[in-house]
């Protein structure tokens, strides 16, 4: 064997050994990554999966089984009975609550979109105005509503415990957030568009409703999704400003549930699950929209 051949062979061996070391290293990294990944999933399942499983499985048990509050498989399934019982309790108060909450949520959102898009348009185009009102709007993001003066005021104008009352109130409380979102978004629409419309003889109404408002669609859908979750999940304001047996709303019905059916955990969890369905559906369809809206709103406020 010539020295040259030897050289080539050793070089080849070295190269291949380097190759082997490289693949080994890659495998090692992969193994570590898989370990980390499975650890992450384990943690996610323990902290976030188990509470959901706990609610679901206990909503399927009978009252004795659910009272034990464990994760075991139900001895006898009561899927239909439990949910039927929840929905027919107290003359179907849960169904009525769903209807009332939907009515409040939808009406408030219509009001919010109307007032906030108009206000956002003007505030974004008139910067001087916006600066003056900045703190007045920010107050609404930070400060909770007062209980007694608001009730007193609602009573004086005859709107306490009425649908219009709670709808206007929810709109007022969501105003700051939605208005800031709209103001920020209108700024991305070029002013030249307004000028062109003005040249073509547009008045303010046709400019806004025919040209600007359709362009606000992305932010309008963000406002719809975020506000509907907020208002649907609102417990505090419904408790203060919309009490009364006839005015059942979902969160209040759930809260009163324990008072009336204290130990019936199977029915409680069935109700919890029913109430969680609308946000879940929204989340499945608008996942990205919700996350973007919440982070965008957060950066603003």
């Amino acid at each position: 064997m010539s020295s040259k051949q030897e050289e080539i062979i050793t070089q080849y061996q070295q190269e291949s050994s380097v190759q082997v070391v490289k693949t080994m290293a890659r495998k090692k990294v992969n193994k570590g990554l898989i370990l980390i990944e499975s650890f992450a999933f384990l943690i996610a399942i323990i902290f976030f999966g188990i509470p959901f499983y706990f609610v679901i499985i206990n909503s399927l048990k009978d009252s004795g089984g659910a009272a034990e509050l464990n994760l075991s498989w139900p001895d006898n399934f009561q899927f239909l009975q439990n949910y039927q019982e929840v929905l027919t309790l107290n003359d179907g108060i849960v169904l009525r609550a769903f209807l009332n909450s939907s009515l409040i949520t939808i009406s408030s959102i219509i009001v919010i979109i109307f007032i906030c898009s108009m206000a956002g348009f003007i505030l974004s185009r008139r910067q001087g105005m916006a600066k003056k009102l900045n703190y007045v709007i920010l107050i609404g993001l930070m400060i909770p509503p007062t209980i007694v003066p608001t009730i007193w005021l609602l009573q004086k104008i005859g709107l306490f415990k009425t649908f219009p009352g709670i709808i206007f109130l929810e709109s007022a409380l969501q105003f700051s957030f939605a208005c800031l979102l709209y103001t920020a978004f209108v700024a991305t629409i070029p002013k030249e568009l307004d000028e062109a419309a003005l040249m073509d003889g547009c008045g303010p109404f046709s400019l806004f409703f025919k040209i600007i408002f359709p362009l606000l669609k992305p932010v309008t859908s963000t406002v719809i999704v975020l506000s509907s979750i907020q208002i649907y999940n609102d417990f505090e304001n419904m408790l203060y400003f919309f009490p009364g047996a006839d005015n059942a709303t979902v969160q209040l019905t759930l809260y009163n549930f324990t008072g009336i059916y204290g130990t019936s955990y199977h029915l409680l969890f069935a109700d919890v699950l029913l109430i969680s369905i609308p946000p879940l559906v929204l989340f499945i369809f608008f996942n990205k929209k919700i996350v973007d809206g919440m982070t965008a709103g957060a950066v603003k406020g």
Binding site: V111, T146, F168, L169, A172, L173, F175
Partner: peptide
């Protein structure tokens, strides 16, 4: 709406 239902109270 904002003044009547939030700022005023």
């Amino acid at each position: 709406i904002y003044c009547t239902f939030f700022l005023l109270p």
